[in-house]
Amino acid sequence: MQRISARSLAALATIGTLVLTGCGTESGDPEAEAVSVSAGRTIRAQKFMQLTQVHGETGMTLLEGPTFGKDGGLFVVDVTAPEGKPKVMRVDVRKKTSRAVHTDGRGAYTSAQFSPYDGRLYLSDFAHGEVVSLAPGGGDKRTFFSGEVDGAQMNPDDIAFDQEGNLYVSDSRGLSEGEAHGRVVRISRDGAKATVLAKELAAPNGVSFDADHRGLWFSELTENRISYLRLDAKGKVTSRHTAIRVDGGIAQTDSIAVDADGNLYQGLHGRAAMAVYDRYGERLATVELPARTEGLESATNVAITPGGTKAYMTVSGPAGGYLYSFDALAKGIRQSNGG
């Protein structure tokens, strides 16, 4: 077993805070979770395959950012993977096999998306305030964006692309202090310009365009709410409002994906389930794991097969990191890849 470096330990300490407070696997009483408010119908997800076990070096595993590549592979990140273990994996959903795509001794990657502009795989590094990219099959790591935005370092959590390849980031700055310093940031497709679209947010996490690319949904973890930013053709904000208040009990809002009908799939931290809403905020369904499933405590994100309705949800906890599958309410589009 490789020894973990001091730098990696520092990064994982940061991620430990992230896991405990936002995008993680720690939770409270399972019986309390079971009585969280649910509305609409129940969609029962089924175990598809196990991808990871709890890492001895970090004491946890946390799957995130499922996204389909053009080759049909499903790419998944493990936020807390130590050096030498796969930080990015490619899953063959037909064969139920997976292989390592990328590892390094530094990154703590919390999301993944393919750019419509250059076709590369982009990863947000929460611990180091960077966005990096890889060749579609892994390798050729490049730094896309690093440094301060309006005088403050980012903690980039989730990412989404517009149709021209500009990147939109949920910046969870202030998460560890419990302060509303978070932002939504737009980065030009060449990585040269970063613009704050919304600020003073309570640990923004999920971010996704709506089905028509007219606006941006984003969730705030410590307020359990989803807001909507209306954007013009140049990516400037024309309006903003709170759209949905998620009645999650002890569970908190994590990542967001959107299907072809505009429905929102809201991941939950602290409960292995997803809440599904229509674009007007009506709770349509709750995606649940089979009864008596143990050791899985967060359903962070989901990817819906492009042009199909088969959905793959990333679920993690003391039992390990898994993919669970279910039938989505509508077909998958670019926004159905959980960024």
Rank of each mutant, 00 (worst) to 15 (best):
F144K: 11
F144Y: 14
F144P: 01
F144R: 05
F144T: 03
F145N: 01
F145L: 05
F145H: 07
F145K: 03
F145R: 02
F145Y: 11
F145V: 02
S146A: 12
S146E: 06
G147K: 01
G147Y: 07
G147H: 07
G147P: 02
E148P: 00
E148Y: 00
E148A: 09
E148H: 00
V149Q: 04
V149W: 03
D150A: 12
D150L: 01
D150E: 15
G151N: 10
G151H: 04
G151Y: 04
G151Q: 07
G151D: 08
G151C: 02
A152G: 01
A152R: 11
A152V: 08
A152T: 04
Q153C: 00
Q153D: 01
Q153K: 03
M154P: 00
M154R: 03
M154Q: 05
N155R: 12
N155H: 09
N155Y: 02
N155L: 10
N155E: 13
P156M: 14
P156G: 07
D157W: 05
D157Y: 10
D157V: 13
I159M: 09
I159P: 00
I159N: 06
I159S: 07
A160C: 12
A160I: 08
A160K: 09
A160D: 10
A160R: 09
A160Q: 10
A160T: 12
F161Y: 11
F161P: 14
F161W: 10
D162F: 14
D162N: 15
Q163W: 03
Q163S: 12
Q163D: 13
Q163I: 07
E164P: 02
E164I: 03
E164V: 13
E164W: 03
E164H: 11
E164C: 01
E164F: 03
G165H: 02
G165P: 11
G165F: 01
G165Y: 00
N166L: 06
N166S: 15
N166V: 13
N166C: 10
N166I: 08
L167K: 11
L167Q: 08
L167M: 15
L167W: 08
Y168F: 15
Y168V: 01
Y168K: 02
V169R: 11
S170Q: 05
S170V: 11
S170I: 08
S170G: 12
S170M: 06
D171M: 06
D171P: 06
D171F: 12
D171K: 04
S172V: 06
S172P: 01
S172E: 12
S172H: 01
R173M: 15
R173H: 13
R173Q: 15
R173G: 14
G174Q: 14
L175G: 02
L175N: 13
